[in-house]
Design a protein around this nucleic acid. Sequence first.
DNA 1: TCGAAGATTCTA
DNA 2: AGAATCTTCGAA
Length: 169
Amino acid sequence: MVGQIVEVEAYRGKDDPASHAFRGPTPRNAPMFGEPGHAYIYFTYGNHYCLNFTTQRVGVPGAVLIRALQPVEGISLMKRFRPNVADVELTSGPGKLTKALWIDKSLNEQDLTVRGPLFVVDRGDKGLEIARSTRIGVGEHGGDKFWRFFVRGNPYISRRGGIREMTSS
DNA sequence: TCGAAGATTCTA
DNA sequence: AGAATCTTCGAA
């Protein structure tokens, strides 16, 4: 199965109260402090896995939460993992996309830069219009940061009301 | 050891 | 608008 990443959010460390790494390393967030380019996968709300791509050098916490994909290949299989949902809803959220691609904690800490069970490649797309907004689902702390990035107008991004979009630079 | 919160989703 | 559902973490 293949999907194009169309929405992400950035999370950091002690300067980011919304981050799992805000209070330092724990068993769960260990991948955020590890090698860059690896998977950080966690389970939340008793139901959902969320997939992150680690970004910083060893010892520095940082990750990008993959919030939405545009399905590209293997759509019928995604539908089997997420029955009875419209195509546009298949991967339009961090918990939705992990279910559609059958991503769980067994893939935690995978190296996403090399070909394997789960990996990311740069398609070299040019000219995509990237918009940014406040992050979704974060509380009062950290809600001021415009660290959500998405392809403007893409129908596969997650939908939720009340998002403050950055107006100008 | 216990309790509260959570980078969500689905249903009413 | 509210429930479901259970792991994780920090405090006691």
